[in-house]
Design a protein around this nucleic acid. Structure first.
Length: 611
DNA sequence: CTTAGGG
DNA sequence: CCCTAAG
């Protein structure tokens, strides 16, 4: 790929808005932003996003209507995260509206589209090769393809159309598809979406690389308890692997899953693992990639984060959030962005205390209770043309320092006693991984399920109901702590995902039941699950294991149909049961098995290492 | 603060 | 999930 082309292309695009011709080298990450009077960029609000949402579907559309919404522009960044900066310096000059450059696509929606397009285009010549390329390159390719698509005459391609193409096209194009390993039953890939995930697909030993898209989707479902329509194998594989290893540190291919565990990562078997992660190898790979292709440096950040509506940062600044950096010596070889933690709060008491927040859309009103942990940067005030002061913080967007609204995520005023969940928010808790010094490295998985209408609304890439698209900002709220602080009624109910259960079981296995805080610390870092949660869940698991296993095919418990409750695979329940029994018998002589990389966990079906 | 249990 | 008693 012409690395050099980016910058120039960039300029061109800004001039004639014709990025099509430059498609070859400019995979982009988009984000919808609004230009304030002073030239600062602020993330688009949900409302704004909705207004421009259709552009995401058809970027060919000229953007005349953009005039309808003053001050809203689109900018783009290229893969190098440099932003086409619109007169940042001259805060006053507003950008030419006709000069709308681009896309915003951080939304899942966009991602979906991306994947979809990638599939539909086929790019026969490239396709097979793509699979063999470095992950980062692959990513690049995909985006490139996506862009390529845009100058196809078929710009009207709708998602549905694409989807149809997929079924046939996909299979053919699928260079990787080899016959499944035994264990995965035929039922796994039924076209029909059954109400219950097919766990069998993960039960036997399966190389994720060998799975078809559908199978991967099924595996995804089995892992996370929800469906996906993402057709990007790479993405699916990584997600599944991440889910099963509780980590983001998974290779993009070569993962072998066995009984819900990632037991192998191709040639990386021998390397000692921490929580199933081959760190050294990954690091090495990373370094290699970095040397070979500077663009790759972001790959390991994980798609989740890249698409989670974060302003991509290339150049760390003082104001950068303390991002967890691994190998700091290497100059930020691996930077993991600390998740933004926000939480939607009620509007009411926000106004009285804080008129400044009003500026940035209702969504920005969101307050993250976790913020108290650590303000990203010292906020300072800015004054826009209206002389309204509002708080922003400096951030780097594509290397350019800009100001984005700073949201005080600390709750103000007295605790609310009558909290009413009023905003649908997608807590796209994607794998936000934290590397700690001691090597503990676990990510929380990004799965949660719908709960009541009033609760979190799951709105993933897969759900095409764009009406409910949360908007870019919503992604920004992607994070951990769904808890409402003191006075705020109760914690949001977030169903346990399979991977969480696995983590729990594993934790109990290792540290023993009762060591909840420890398990919580080691297996659920940066998770909103508290030790009490773990304890409760474990209790429930035990109950479940006792009842379900005994009554097996008995009368279905009423809850079984509850879509928000993921079914626990029998094998896991079995393990729970055994562990429970073991804990009982062992009493306090629980011998926590540390260093149990994968040894203890990857025990076939029944026995759990101890027996 | 962490656990254990009941609600 | 919440709440609380107990250590």
């Amino acid at each position: 790929m012409e690395v050099g082309g980016s910058q120039d292309d960039l300029e061109n695009k800004s001039d004639d808005n014709d990025f099509n011709k430059n498609r070859s080298s400019d995979p982009v990450v988009y984000q919808l932003v609004r230009v304030e009077g002073d030239g600062t960029l602020v993330p688009a609000t949900e409302d704004e996003f909705l207004q421009f949402e259709h552009f995401l579907h058809d970027e060919k559309v000229d953007l005349p209507s953009i005039d309808d919404v003053p001050h809203v522009e689109k900018y783009f960044t290229n893969d190098r995260f440099t932003l086409k900066k619109p007169n940042f310096e001259e805060g006053s000059s507003k950008l030419d509206t006709t000069d709308v450059q681009v896309h915003t696509l951080d939304a899942d929606l966009a991602e979906d589209r991306l994947h979809t397009l990638d599939d539909s285009i086929g790019l026969p010549s490239n396709r097979s090769a793509v699979h063999d390329q470095q992950p980062d390159k692959l990513n690049t390719e995909q985006v490139g393809n996506n862009i390529a698509q845009q100058d196809n005459a078929s710009t009207e391609t709708t998602k549905s159309t694409v989807l149809n193409d997929l079924s046939s096209e996909k299979e053919k194009a699928d260079a990787c598809s080899k016959p499944l390993n035994d264990a995965s039953t035929g039922t796994s890939v039924s076209g029909v979406t059954s109400s219950v995930p097919d766990f069998s697909i993960l039960r036997g030993e399966v190389c994720l690389d060998d799975l078809t898209i559908r199978e991967l989707q099924e595996a995804f479902r089995a892992t996370f308890g929800r469906q996906t329509t993402v057709k990007d194998k790479l993405w699916l594989k990584r997600r599944i692997a991440m889910g099963l290893t509780n980590s983001c540190d998974v290779p993009s291919s070569g993962c072998v899953v066995k009984d819900y565990k990632v037991i192998g990562m191709d040639a990386k078997q021998e390397i000692p693992t921490v929580g199933g992660i081959h760190k050294m190898e990954l690091e090495a790979t990373l370094v290699r990639n970095q040397i070979m292709n500077p663009r790759s440096s972001f790959f390991y950040q994980g798609e989740e984060q890249q698409r989670s509506s974060k302003w991509l940062k290339r150049v760390p600044t003082d104001n950068d959030e303390p991002q967890v950096a691994v190998f700091t010596g290497q100059g930020a070889i691996k930077r993991i962005r600390k998740p933004t933690k926000r939480y939607i709060e009620e509007l009411s008491d926000a106004e009285t205390h804080d008129s400044t927040r009003r500026l940035s859309s209702p969504v920005n009103r969101a307050v993250n209770d976790e913020v108290l942990l650590r303000p990203r940067a010292t906020p300072f005030h800015e004054v826009d043309s209206l002389n309204t002061t509002y708080t922003t913080r400096e951030d780097t967007l594509g290397g350019c320092s800009i100001h984005v609204p700073y949201v005080s995520r600390m709750r103000r005023g007295r605790p609310r006693s009558n909290f009413i969940p009023l905003l649908d928010l997608k807590p796209s808790v994607e794998c936000t991984e934290v590397h700690t010094a001691d090597g503990v490295n676990l990510g929380k998985d990004g799965e949660q399920r719908n709960h009541k209408n009033t609760e979190w609304k799951r709105e993933d890439t897969e759900t095409a109901s764009n009406k409910e698209v949360q908007g870019l900002l919503a992604k920004d709220f992607s994070d951990v702590n769904p808890k409402i602080k003191r006075g705020g009624k109760r914690k949001h109910h977030r169903a346990w995902t399979l991977s969480e259960v696995l983590k729990l079981v594993d934790g109990v296995d290792r540290y023993g039941a009762g060591k909840w805080s420890e398990i919580r610390r080691l297996s659920f870092p940066c998770s909103y699950r508290t030790s009490v949660d773990l304890k409760d869940k474990w209790r429930n698991l035990i109950r479940a294991s006792q009842s379900q296993l005994s009554t097996e095919n008995d009368v279905v418990c009423p809850r079984k149909n509850n879509p928000s409750t993921i079914p626990i695979p029998p094998s896991i329940l079995l393990r729970v049961k055994e562990l429970a029994a073991m804990q009982r018998h062992a009493g306090d002589s629980t011998v926590p098995i540390k260093f149990s990389g994968q040894s203890t966990r990857v025990v076939h079906g029944k026995v759990s290492g101890f027996l």
